[in-house]
Design a protein around this nucleic acid. Structure first.
Lengths: 341, 341
DNA sequence: CCAAAACTTGTAATCGATTACATCTACTGT
DNA sequence: ACAGTAGATGTAATCGATTACAAGTTTTGG
């Protein structure tokens, strides 16, 4: 581990003071052409790169963002993280990731990272906003934003989400238009905001169409939006005497797990039962049958959220208006629904 | 943005010097019980958290690791990143992610991050080791490791990979044992080490069994290990007069894309053609038919790589032996191969 | 040709923590 | 009772960059 090159080394080599080196880099036209040249070549010769810690200490800014993810290994977040990294690193910010794993002690850990001034901003990408008390103090320290979730009654952070209820209602209405009357729902991760909203949308659409809400057709109890939840829901399907003709799963992976379990028992989709999902993840289109689903613009949401946070981080001290952006979902019709007409 | 609490504030409040506060935290038994108590309660009252930049500057260590990913949005890396974050954050290190996107300028960017002393270690998780000249200097500065890839002739970094060639040969031998004689190969991302090795394993197994290597059955030209590559390979299949009875895809997503394209044309798997993949990603088991594949222990590899890097980062200055760990793959037999006997 | 303005560069304080060294107190053993 | 030592705490240097202010130099205008 060689000693690193410092600004002192460059200054000595170029025959100037450290202040001049610093200026040659940060404020090039406050310095003579000649000095800038010699500073630059000294930098090139020594291979100097300004030390990040020293800079952060003085500037009180680390040029880093903390992205908090639930970290259940769900590939739903892959394109989101991709978009975030793209925009942030383009804006000169590094991306520190933190998986909370719905775990209090890990939330506390990351709250401490924030308080240590290790990041200039925080982006919470999860339905479960950290409950740690330490987090209530965060927005006073650094800008913070929420994605795919909402915390009612706070203008402290920007929020980027979709109209889960409306979108779910649209989806169920579509099933009704296709002639379905007996529609089941797998609402996904119990207690999550998305789950609640999507279930509400399902009920709303049924009621609006004058259809009854049958508790036997609401298959709760999932702890996540994953395959296993779909597989478990299949047991509910088989246990039922009077089967539904369509199933609305609150996430694509749930739908896929459900379909897989049904196909294992020789049930055909969509011939025997129609299935729809939510999210439009990568696998929805490649599955057989290709899944009809509600697309969440994940990449775009990531870009918008990142740009907003970027703007707020740069606006040092000034009034920082937060925003609540609710993006439209799009019904993507594929092959997993059979019209009953 | 309130001014943050510093060690000065705590010292003043506890009526001691900053040195004592620092010691009360770092070396608790060099301090009287009484002073420690009063320092601790001053910390609690003020809500003090040591500033990361100041600490890094002095200690010449940031407690951060840079994880470099290709960033093609491939969910192959999801469990790897998960495992890395788990082990690193448990070890007190933050995880900075960087998507190189096979892009020179982004590699340069991250080389600069390393040289700025922003991280204590680097983990390259990609088949394509950065080619930027700046990277050759990295191992002299901080420990660096490679996952899923290898750079021949360097003992400078630890390597964690699988025996791609042997594993591929095993897979193809399995197909031969099942009675297949005409076996095609979709080798995946052109020019990548994994691709080359897996293709070599395929050829090795054929030769060992005395079977001819038919260039018409090697469907090159993929730029990635993704669905689209599989779909494109399907065109090669259809164009062929004498079809293969089995296809070895160098990645699960390629296999899935290929199967999907075939099924679209009414071809049944495995009845009409057998298909196998490589990796055992989440979707292999949930697809219909469930995919026979070669499991790479991604989570375990992530854990091992992280622990190794952790060890090397902690061993300040001392002799740091690097390791080359080659983990075994496991043939996972599911439903996508039909025995020809 | 000289004072004022504009420009360039240097000196030194600063950011917040850690730590070598100095100092002071209390205790030990003879 | 006193030198010697161990233990607790304080003082101040240090890490590497940025920047307010000072000082020196050049240009401008009358």
């Amino acid at each position: 581990m060689r000693r690193a090159v410092t600004i002192q080394d460059v200054a000595r080599r170029a025959g100037v003071s450290t202040a001049t080196v610093s200026r040659a880099l940060a404020l090039p036209d406050q310095v003579t052409d000649a000095t800038r040249q010699s500073v630059m070549s000294a930098i090139r010769e020594t291979g100097y790169t300004p030390n990040a810690a020293a800079r952060s200490l003085r500037a009180k800014s680390t040029k880093m963002v903390l992205v908090l993810l639930p970290g259940i290994g769900n590939s739903f977040f892959t394109p989101v993280l991709n978009a975030l990294e793209e925009v942030f690193s383009e804006g000169g910010y590094g991306v520190l990731i933190g998986y909370t794993r719905q775990n209090r002690s890990r939330e506390t850990h990351y709250a401490r990272v924030i308080r240590a001034g290790q990041v200039d901003g925080v982006l919470v990408v999860t339905g479960n906003v950290p409950r740690d008390e330490e987090f209530v103090a965060v927005p006073a320290t650094v800008p913070m934003s929420l994605m795919f979730s909402e915390l009612p009654g706070t203008a402290q952070f920007s929020v980027f989400d979709v109209a889960n209820r409306t979108a779910s209602a649209t989806m169920v209405r579509y099933l009704i238009e296709q002639g379905h009357r007996r529609i089941a729902c797998i609402p996904g991760a119990e207690g999550s905001l998305e789950s609640d909203e999507r279930l509400a949308g399902y009920q709303e659409a049924l009621s609006a169409a004058g259809l009854p809400i049958d508790p036997d057709l609401i298959w709760r109890g999932a702890s996540n939006f994953d395959f296993i939840s779909g597989e478990r829901a299949a047991a509910r399907y088989f246990a039922l005497a009077e089967k539904p003709t369509a199933v609305f799963a609150a996430a694509d992976e749930i739908a896929l797990g459900f379909m897989r379990a049904l196909k294992n028992h020789g049930i055909r989709i969509p011939e025997d039962v129609s299935v729809v999902g939510f999210d439009d993840t990568e696998y929805a289109v490649h599955y057989d049958p290709a899944l009809t689903t509600m697309r969440q613009p994940r990449t775009e949401m990531g870009r918008l959220a990142a740009r907003d946070l970027l703007r707020r981080m740069e606006a040092k001290g000034e009034a920082v208006p937060t925003s609540h952006v609710r993006l439209p979902c799009e019904l993507v019709i594929r092959e997993s629904v059979r019209p009953l007409v």
